[in-house]
């Protein structure tokens, strides 16, 4: 969560709010913030740290591990209409890539604002595609696999 907190200004620029959720109590969140997160990132985790003590939220999102009694690493991008636009779920041993999260937010915001679609690996400034009948079978003319890198 420290890696997400470190990108606070980028999330602010994109108008994105973040919530972290684990099965720990809000009391434990306070101590984790004080004892560890605030030593990794100035100010610590700057958004609400939510307590999901009984796993009710995790179950609703399909990330609650009944045997372990914990929520595994699920990440969801929710648009202003409350629709989940992206989800990524990892088992506990591999951490997230915050850069990829930010790229996806930018892509979904671009799509929402323009009606264009963003091909593989899209970053702001790279070519997009405008869906239309005469593009069918012609994507190879407008988009090259090198654009994905």
């Amino acid at each position: 969560m420290a890696a997400v907190a470190a990108k606070k200004s980028e999330f602010d620029d994109l108008g994105v709010e973040v919530l972290s959720i684990s099965t720990n109590s809000h009391f434990v969140h306070k101590i984790w913030q004080a004892e560890e997160l605030s030593k990794m990132v100035e100010g610590g985790f700057p958004w609400p740290m939510v307590s999901d003590g009984n796993g009710r939220i995790g179950r609703a999102y399909g990330v609650y591990d009944e045997q372990g009694g914990v929520n595994i690493r699920g990440r969801f991008i929710i648009d202003p209409d409350g629709i989940i636009q992206a989800m990524e779920v990892l088992t506990p041993t591999v951490g997230r890539n915050v850069g990829e999260l930010i790229r996806q937010v930018k892509a979904f915001q671009h799509v929402r604002d323009t009606g264009e679609v963003t091909p593989s690996g899209w970053q702001p400034g790279k070519p997009t595609l405008k869906p239309r009948p005469d593009l069918v079978g012609m994507v190879w003319k407008e988009w090259k696999v090198e654009n994905a890198e």
């Binding site: 994105v16 972290s20 684990s22 969140h29 690493r73 990440r75 202003p80």
Partner: peptide, 19 residues
């Protein structure tokens, strides 16, 4: 806090195994 209070905003929620 309530997720529905975030209506109208882009919101990211991150679950993690534990503090």
């Amino acid at each position: 806090i309530k997720l529905s209070d975030y209506a109208g905003k882009w919101t990211v929620i991150c679950f993690y195994p534990g503090d």
